[in-house]
């Protein structure tokens, strides 16, 4: 994994520790979309690959439709820190209307952002120039696979491709094992999300 922490002057002392660097992720969606489950599934997939993980989510005041977030840390060493993620390396956004304010402020400059949207990549690049935004049409993928509005498998596949981790088969197996029904459809949606970002990255590199 190649993500490095931002090196603002305020972080000078902390960064001198060396050693491994924690990958920090924030997932945001609206209550009922499955953002919290997606956070747990992603943590489970990283754990299945032998990584240390910590994943917690907002709770209590959450209702259907209100913004909810899931926070994930991934490292090769046991994770000791117990505080909010303020400088995320990557965001996964279930609803493009949330890509602003507090949620966007939780990302470090240059952070990778995968967003559930049918809009083209260029529009996000001009609107959010300080970040690396990769849109994926999670809704279209979900509907193609008979999953209705349940976009989390497609988005997780897309996110894993963008992060280059966890491996597709680990993630796909984690999702299928956890799905109460439609395991096959969820695996397929995960694969299509993964491929959609892969194609986008290939086009960009060409």
């Amino acid at each position: 994994m190649t993500y490095r922490k931002a090196r603002s002057p305020g972080r000078r002392i902390l960064d001198r520790q060396g050693g491994s660097v924690t990958l920090q992720i924030v997932i945001s969606g609206r209550g009922g979309q499955g953002a919290q489950l997606a956070g747990n599934l992603l943590a489970m997939a990283f754990f299945a690959e032998g990584r240390e993980v910590q994943c917690f989510a907002t709770y209590g005041g959450a209702r259907r439709g209100t913004p909810v977030s899931s926070f994930i840390r991934v490292d090769d060493r046991p994770i000791r820190v117990r505080c909010d993620i303020e400088q995320a390396d990557a965001l996964l956004c279930f609803d493009a209307s949330l890509l602003a304010g507090k949620f966007l402020a939780s990302a470090r400059p240059g952070a990778l952002i995968v967003v559930n949207s049918s809009r083209p990549r260029g529009e996000f690049a001009s609107e959010l120039p300080g970040y690396r935004v990769l849109p994926v049409d999670g809704l279209a993928i979900a509907q193609r696979n008979g999953l209705g509005r349940i976009v989390n498998s497609a988005l997780l596949g897309a996110f894993a491709r963008a992060l280059e981790s966890p491996a597709l088969d680990t993630l796909s197996r984690t999702i299928a094992d956890a799905a109460p029904k439609s395991g096959q459809e969820n695996s397929q949606a995960c694969l299509e999300g993964y491929r959609a970002i892969g194609e986008q990255l290939q086009r960009a590199a060409a």
């Binding site: 240390e52 993980v53 910590q54 994943c55 917690f56 709770y59 117990r82 505080c83």
Partner: peptide, 12 residues
Amino acid sequence: LDAFYVSHALEP
């Protein structure tokens, strides 16, 4: 155990 950081943190 602290709310949130321990009670709701999924970890090994």
